[in-house]
């Protein structure tokens, strides 16, 4: 696989360098909203959607910044535009697709402060991805996030039924599970290696 091919970029963002399990991005919702499968999956989908929107925004902003040679404003521009874009999407959804809004809407404000969103925008800039590569990168990152949070929720639903010592309840146990998941995802690392 060529490192700049679209399928490779997708797999790389989803499995090999999974945003949550390898890069520690988006840990907050990963720990906070992974209690039940039925909320974890919509959260993952909502995040993927926001990732796509902000990836497109970041691509356009970066073109403007490079054109006028003002790259030192990149961070401020990214965070401001992404936050506003998410808010706009939220308002549009509320007006035109209230059903979708009810199922995803509660997560949207949470997502804006999610590090994975800004991380995605910054990484795609540093990797000099073009338009289609950026889109695929965003889709891959979203898929990887959804996969990680869904797996985590499945594990935690089972754990609710088991007897755990008091000091390990809550965050400590979730993090330990995250470590084990991360360990198993390490197995994907060689997927794109030179053959």
């Amino acid at each position: 696989m060529q490192p700049d091919s679209l399928i490779f970029i997708f797999l790389n963002a989803a499995l090999m360098n999974n945003f949550v399990l390898a890069l520690f991005l988006g840990l907050c919702p990963f720990l906070g909203v992974s209690g039940k499968l039925e909320t974890a999956v919509p959260m993952g989908l909502a995040t993927s959607f926001v990732m796509l929107v902000s990836s497109l925004c970041a691509y356009v902003i970066n073109l403007i910044l490079v054109r006028y040679d003002i790259e030192f404003l990149r961070l401020i521009a990214y965070i401001a535009v992404i936050a506003s874009a998410v808010q706009l999407v939220e308002m549009t959804m509320k007006k035109y697709t209230p059903g979708l809004f009810r199922s995803l809407g509660i997560f949207l404000p949470l997502i804006t402060t999610n590090c994975a969103i800004l991380g995605l925008a910054l990484f795609q800039t540093f990797k000099h991805y073009d338009f289609f590569q950026s889109v695929v990168y965003a889709l891959g990152a979203g898929a990887g996030f959804t996969l990680a949070i869904a797996l985590m929720a499945g594990l935690r639903e089972k754990l609710d039924l088991s007897d755990v010592p008091g000091i390990a309840k809550g965050a400590a146990l979730s993090l330990m599970l995250g470590g084990l998941l991360s360990l198993s995802f390490m197995g994907f690392a060689g997927l794109g290696g030179a053959h």
Binding site: L21, F24, A172, M176, G179, S182, L183
Partner: peptide, 22 residues
């Protein structure tokens, strides 16, 4: 020093913290 180590060590630190507080 790989990513899983970050999760596991932080989890152990939380356990120790909870243990001391308990």
């Amino acid at each position: 020093i790989l990513p899983p180590g970050g999760f596991i060590v932080l989890s152990l630190m939380l356990l120790a913290f909870n243990f001391i507080n308990a």
